[in-house]
């Protein structure tokens, strides 16, 4: 049986994977795009399609995020517009890089190596974060340097800080290139860049981040769709699962302790890095078992960590239920 032009099994697989990603990233407050593109790579999709579909997924999830945060998030429109200008230019350049690498026959290797590195770095940073109480002094020092660059004109931002126009455009451009090449939303870079780099208050950074990811995600998805690199059935299935999972994950944040599970989450990102490496080694040396290992690693680790989130939440919910019932009995006596 076919749904949306794809086999029912594949639709179920992508919807299920979307659900897991939604639970995880809804719980940890991230978009989840940087696990979608490597999963598509591991499943054998062309790099361009994996990146283009990843960007469309980013767009869909950020539209839902924008709807959820409407009325809550404050937006610095000046900053959002400048960042979108920088990011869309970067995405365009990123797509040219992709086309150049594709023509040179080096695209798959480049994207794979980039993802192995990205997932390993984000995984290690998350692991360090989970194991220490470090408040990130290195980041603060870097941010101070960024704010001290006073190339005119400078732009006044919400929160009272002022930053050079060129720094804002350069940061947006850099994140845009990453987004255009890897199919990620870039929220994990945008948030710290705005909060620590530009001195924007957290509430404004959240609202501005969602707006600019929505706009640049739409632009990125459109750019890749022009060349036929957007797989709608895959994106629709992933989005159906992740929108539900994100609600479950967000509800779980009030129950489970994030720090208890952060280590597992870091391990999952590292497993994602290994999965992409395993897939490439499998292709290079024609070892089919390595390709199977890569799929098991990326799907299995997402399943295990989201199960840990759910188990921890349900246990906490039951414990709360029992203590509330005990309190009610004590009051009645």
């Amino acid at each position: 049986m076919e749904i949306l032009g794809m086999s029912a099994l594949m639709v179920a697989t992508f919807t299920g994977f979307g659900l897991l990603i939604g639970i995880l990233f809804g719980f940890f407050g991230m978009g989840g795009s940087f696990l979608v593109t490597p999963a598509l790579l591991v499943m054998g999709f062309r790099s361009e399609v994996a990146v283009g579909s990843g960007l469309a997924f980013v767009f869909g999830t950020s539209v839902i995020g924008a709807l959820k945060h409407r009325g809550l998030g404050q937006v610095d429109y000046k900053l959002a517009v400048l960042m979108v200008v920088g990011m869309t230019s970067g995405i365009e350049v990123g797509k040219y890089v992709i086309e150049f690498l594709s023509a040179a026959g080096a695209l798959d290797l480049f994207i794979s190596v980039a993802y192995i590195g990205l997932l390993a770095i984000v995984g290690l940073v998350t692991l360090r974060d989970a194991r220490s109480d470090d408040d990130g002094d290195d980041g603060s020092r870097f941010a101070e340097k960024l704010r001290n660059v006073r190339i005119p004109p400078t732009i006044s931002l919400n929160g009272g800080s002022s930053v050079s126009l060129w720094i804002i455009l350069a940061v947006g451009f850099g994140i845009g290139i990453l987004s255009g090449i890897l199919g990620v939303g870039g929220g994990f870079l945008l948030m710290p860049a705005m909060m620590y780099g530009f001195g924007v208050p957290a509430a404004v950074a959240v609202g501005t981040d969602i707006l600019q990811i929505t706009l640049s995600g739409a632009f990125g998805a459109f750019t890749y769709a022009q060349s036929g690199y957007l797989n709608l059935p895959v994106v629709a299935s992933l989005l159906t699962g992740s929108a539900l999972g994100a609600r479950i994950g967000a509800a779980a944040t009030s129950l489970a302790n994030e720090d208890d599970i952060k280590g597992y989450f870091a391990a999952m990102l590292l497993a994602g890095s290994l999965a992409v490496a395993s897939k490439n080694l499998g292709n290079a040396f024609d070892v089919s078992v390595l390709q199977t290992v890569s799929i098991v690693l990326i799907l299995g680790s997402a399943l295990v960590v989201s199960a840990a989130v759910l188990y921890s939440s349900i246990t906490e919910l039951r414990a709360n239920g029992v203590s509330e019932a005990t309190d009610a009995h004590a009051k009645a006596d």
């Binding site: 767009f59 709807l67 769709a225 022009q226 929108a243």
Partner: peptide
């Protein structure tokens, strides 16, 4: 699917992004 195959270039890209947008809003609701 949804007649998108008959479109090409920018119109097709716009339709695809539009469908993702509509799906996202529908899922939210």
């Amino acid at each position: 699917m949804f007649g998108i195959e008959t479109l090409s270039g920018n119109a097709k890209a716009l339709a695809l992004v539009g469908l993702v947008f509509v799906q996202a809003i529908s899922l939210y609701v």
